[in-house]
Design a protein around this nucleic acid. Structure first.
Length: 423
RNA sequence: GGUGAGGUGGAUGAGUGGCUGAAAUCAGUAGUUUGCUAAACUGCCGUACGGGUUAAACUGUACCGCGGGUUCGAAUCCCGCCCUCACCGCCA
């Protein structure tokens, strides 16, 4: 949620920023400011009236104490009149307040100045590339054939147990998955991230806090009986740890990492994009989250991007880093870097991480604040990123490293997996 | 699922109708003093939205889990909801 203060300071600048994010309804800004003015007006009337009533009530108490019954009764009549005024203002005020809030939550976060304009993924900017594209053997197989060949993932079995998009990892496939998780967590904790095991279901309030609700309602699995949502990413429980908290400035930055399964309904997506491990309803992910001082968040963003990059380099996969254009960014993000790895047999880039700075957009909603040196209350900045999403990494490892004798694994995994080749 | 207790500021916790935006303690902060670390003492210290000011000072309203109600007046009384804790039941 944007801060009203930002809107009223420079509405034209806000509109310009919104346009970069490809947000159409910029006149919403004017409408919000208009409601803001109306609210001021009604609040003022309400406060004035209430002040008179409070003063009268006080004097009634004093008159009663003195035994001046008649005078007290006079005052009561006065209050009765004032209350009529109050009752007439109340619905106007609450109406304006509701509209104001409803409209304000419709505004996405403003893009940072580095964000390139653009509407589609084609307009994202490649900021860095690394690794070498592998030379695959003749008859190279896509990962969904490889998983069958080595009997490590069974998609049909998952369909039997649950439905499509819930694969079953078996034997060495399960172990490789576990090795990756272990390696990622170790890599993150070595960089100072505290490991957390959060709940996999969250309350409505938590889902609202990070911005999944109200606009991404249909993307989450909902346990209606208890009104819990299965997490689409551990960002939700991790960031909500600090919801409604007044933090100590000295406790910043907070660095957290977690491995969790993630659940996504992915309503409306099908076709070749969902083949194999490309898009699942349940998948594993290791996440990193930081909560920082507002002056430090861009430094932190940089640090997180480099961190994820190092991890990808260690996996020896060809990767590229994209700065997302305004139109392709998430609703709550101020700037986002996507990481993609090259899936050689499919001949396409797959997103495996997305690192974003939300600035105060989430913290304003969640009321995550701290007191600075002058004792002023300020909102923190929140950031998060994947390090990494497992299935697509697995897909690339399988495809890119396939050889006659088996799948060669990068050096960083040998110890975890207990072997340098999967056969 | 049953029964009981409870939700107050950054934290602990007092407060059962007007003197309470809220005691006290701790934390925080500014200062004084003791030649250091530390201790003692003194002042300040909730949030939001307004009015006011160059900026302050000053000032209005709301907020004691959430939403209603009673009353001239509610943290305090009544109703509904949510949550937490304890004990019992069930279960990993």
């Amino acid at each position: 949620m944007l801060q009203l203060q930002v809107l009223s300071q420079d509405p034209e600048w806000v509109k310009e920023r919104l346009t970069i994010k490809n947000f159409k309804d910029v006149q919403l800004v004017d409408s919000i400011l208009e409601l803001h003015e109306q609210r001021k007006k009604y609040t003022f009337q309400y406060d004035e009236t209430k002040a008179l009533i409070n003063a009268a009530s006080k004097s009634i108490g004093q008159l009663m104490a003195k035994g001046a019954k008649a005078a007290a009764e006079e005052k009561k009549k006065e209050v009765e009149q004032l209350k009529k005024t109050l009752v007439s203002i109340e619905p106007l005020l609450s109406d304006v307040e509701k509209n104001l809030h409803d409209q304000l939550v419709q505004l996405p976060n403003l893009p940072a100045k580095e964000v390139p304009p653009g509407k589609t993924p084609e307009e994202n900017v490649v900021v860095r590339e690394g690794g070498n594209l592998p030379k695959l053997p003749e008859q190279a197989l896509p990962h969904w054939e490889l998983t069958k060949k080595y009997d490590i993932i069974d998609f049909e079995l998952g369909t039997k147990i649950t439905g499509s998009g819930f694969p079953v990892y078996k034997g060495k496939g399960a172990k490789l998955q576990r090795s990756l998780i272990q390696y990622f967590l170790d890599f993150n904790t070595a960089a100072g991230y505290q490991e957390i095991q959060p709940p996999l279901m969250v309350s409505e309030a938590s889902a609202f806090g990070t911005g999944q609700l109200p606009d991404k309602e249909g993307q989450m699995y909902h346990a209606t009986e208890d009104n819990f949502y299965l997490i689409p990413t551990s960002e939700v429980p991790l960031t909500n740890i600090y919801r409604d908290e007044m933090m100590k400035e000295t406790s910043l930055p907070v660095k957290m990492t977690a491995f969790t399964p993630c659940f996504r309904r992915e309503a409306g997506s099908y076709g070749k994009d969902v083949r194999g491990l490309n898009r699942l309803h349940q998948f594993d992910k290791v996440e990193i989250v930081q909560i920082t001082h507002p002056d430090k968040s861009y430094e932190t963003l940089d640090e997180m991007v480099k961190h994820v990059e190092k991890l990808l380099i260690s996996l020896e996969l060809p990767y590229r880093i994209l700065r997302l254009c305004g139109g392709d960014m998430g609703f709550a993000s101020a700037i986002t870097y996507d990481f993609e790895v090259y899936s050689a047999a499919q001949e396409k880039w797959l997103e495996v991480s997305s690192v974003s700075n939300f600035e105060t957009y989430q913290s304003n909603r969640m009321k995550v604040r701290f007191k600075d040196a002058e004792g002023k209350t300020k909102l923190v900045h929140t950031l998060n990123g994947s390090s990494l999403a497992l299935p697509r990494i697995l897909a690339c490892l399988l495809e890119n490293n396939q050889a006659a004798e088996g799948i060669h694994l990068p050096a960083c995994l040998h110890e975890y997996f207990g072997s340098d080749v999967l056969m």
